[in-house]
Amino acid sequence: MTPNPTPRPGLFHRLVERTGPVLRFEIDGVPAEGRAGDHLLTAILLARPDLRRFEFAETTRSGFCLMGACQDCWVDLADGRRLRACSTLLEEGMHVLVEGRARA
């Protein structure tokens, strides 16, 4: 897969502005920003249209249930953690790997 050079817009759309601190994180080395209180899934999907590669086909996924039931939102971090993005809060300095690692 060659990475797409043109940035693709985020999927989610913030309706309620937050006043809390800005949290900086990275997606495949690209800097991104979220807010305190964002779930990891929210922060990623505000920045891009999908969350992870699907292990069984050349497609991507964006999660599905947002309530910890479907397990479609597990993402890898550069530090080796594997997290269910819809039920994990964003932390300053997280580095999410979407394209970065081949392993499922």
């Binding site: 999927l11 249209p49 497609t59 996924r61 964006s62 999660g63 599905f64 249930c65 947002l66 309530m67």
Partner: peptide, 10 residues
């Protein structure tokens, strides 16, 4: 299964 399709609850 397209990204961007969620449940109604989601």
């Amino acid at each position: 299964t397209l990204p961007g399709v969620f449940t109604l609850g989601a």
